[in-house]
Simulated assay, not measured.
Amino acid sequence: MSVQLALVASLCFGMQTLAVQYGLSREDDTGILAATTLTLATSTAVLWTVVGVKRGVPAAPALGVLVPFVVAGVADPGLSRLLFYEGIDRLGPSVAAGILAANPAVGALLAVPVLGEQFTAVEALGVGLVVAGVAGLQLVRPATDVDDVDAVRRELRGATPRDLLVPSLGAVLLAASFVLVKVGLDGYADTLVATAVAQTAALLLVAPVALGSRGARQYVRRASPRALGAFLFAGVTVGTGWYAMFLALDLGTVVTVLPLVSTYPLVVVVGTYAAAREPPKSPWVLAAVMAIVLGAAAVQVV
């Protein structure tokens, strides 16, 4: 059952990415802040509902115990989701998701000095695959004056190395948040409540900025019902994905669950080609995304 739940989580995270890409307008940057706020509000509501159903009203822990989760939530999903959605807008969902999925490799590097963990040969191989995959995505960018028939490569048209840094920074923040969560779980073991707290901290960071942004408010007022519905759907799917992942971890092991969850970039790639109604014609793109997914899985199975 844990394998099926892990695949459900992967599907949910992939669907979130595609839904946000559907709702965003490349002509209006204020949509990214609105999308982040709406998805965070929805996923936070989903997670606290699950907490209420499964735990009832949880006993309030000491505030000091929650600090790592609050700080982690500011990093991810607060700032990292903003960067991820910006990456979707600049690079398309397939590439942005592939780069963000590199976070376990970054986390392995951070865990060495922070948690005193050893860096193994398998982790080194995983990091190497991730680096090769991200570098490969830069090399397969089509020229702006060339008609490219591949759906994923078309998303990269006009992208710059600076654009690739946007989701890369999101991956760093996501990895740092996981390290903080691991530190926090030493003092508070309820991962479901901890995640809901982190989501709430992210919402409290982003929501005031969105409410104070005239552009974001105007975007919500003039956005189409389809766009707003896509963001709300993304919030539901990402909240469901987190819950499915926790259930999978409760029933199975980290070694089997997390690598399966990290396959969500492949869901995005398949969805991108399906939406374009065309088969893949760029094996280098698929190889680059697959290298990132395999590298992330290699790091997590150690």
Rank of each mutant, 00 (worst) to 15 (best):
residue 114 V to D: 14
residue 65 V to K: 11
residue 35 A to T: 02
residue 65 V to I: 05
residue 145 D to Q: 02
residue 61 P to L: 06
residue 72 A to S: 07
residue 48 W to H: 09
residue 88 I to M: 07
residue 135 A to L: 13
residue 122 V to S: 09
residue 58 P to L: 07
residue 140 V to N: 13
residue 157 R to I: 05
residue 157 R to D: 09
residue 126 G to W: 02
residue 47 L to R: 02
residue 91 L to F: 09
residue 61 P to R: 10
residue 153 R to P: 12
residue 76 D to E: 13
residue 40 L to I: 00
residue 101 A to S: 15
residue 57 V to Q: 13
residue 65 V to Y: 12
residue 34 A to W: 11
residue 115 L to E: 12
residue 66 L to N: 12
residue 44 T to R: 00
residue 68 P to L: 10
residue 43 S to V: 06
residue 155 E to H: 02
residue 144 T to E: 14
residue 68 P to W: 00
residue 157 R to T: 13
residue 157 R to K: 07
residue 58 P to R: 03
residue 102 A to Y: 07
residue 108 A to G: 03
residue 152 V to N: 11
residue 124 A to C: 01
residue 132 A to H: 03
residue 28 D to W: 05
residue 134 V to N: 03
residue 113 P to K: 00
residue 48 W to A: 12
residue 116 G to F: 15
residue 19 A to L: 02
residue 88 I to G: 09
residue 61 P to C: 10
residue 75 A to C: 14
residue 80 S to H: 04
residue 144 T to H: 09
residue 79 L to I: 11
residue 90 R to Q: 08
residue 109 L to Y: 01
residue 26 R to T: 11
residue 67 V to P: 03
residue 83 L to I: 05
residue 158 G to C: 04
residue 28 D to A: 00
residue 35 A to I: 01
residue 56 G to Y: 01
residue 140 V to L: 15
residue 54 K to I: 13
residue 123 E to R: 15
residue 120 T to E: 07
residue 127 V to Y: 08
residue 68 P to N: 03
residue 134 V to G: 03
residue 115 L to I: 07
residue 29 D to H: 09
residue 116 G to D: 14
residue 146 V to H: 08
residue 79 L to R: 00
residue 153 R to W: 12
residue 54 K to Y: 07
residue 87 G to T: 08
residue 21 Q to V: 00
residue 106 V to S: 04
residue 131 V to F: 00
residue 105 A to Q: 10
residue 85 Y to M: 07
residue 115 L to F: 12
residue 86 E to H: 14
residue 58 P to C: 03
residue 154 R to M: 10
residue 113 P to A: 08
residue 92 G to A: 08
residue 155 E to I: 04
residue 106 V to M: 11
residue 105 A to W: 08
residue 39 T to Y: 01
residue 77 P to V: 01
residue 135 A to V: 12
residue 106 V to E: 12
residue 33 L to Q: 00
residue 138 Q to T: 03
residue 93 P to Q: 15
residue 124 A to L: 04
residue 118 Q to T: 14
residue 22 Y to E: 10
residue 97 A to D: 08
residue 77 P to C: 05
residue 65 V to S: 15
residue 117 E to W: 05
residue 156 L to H: 06
residue 33 L to W: 01
residue 38 L to Y: 04
residue 96 A to Y: 04
residue 53 V to C: 01
residue 46 V to D: 10
residue 141 R to N: 00
residue 31 G to C: 02
residue 62 A to D: 15
residue 28 D to G: 06
residue 127 V to P: 07
residue 150 D to L: 04
residue 97 A to F: 00
residue 86 E to T: 13
residue 143 A to C: 07
residue 121 A to I: 10
residue 95 V to F: 08
residue 114 V to T: 14
residue 100 L to M: 15
residue 33 L to F: 02
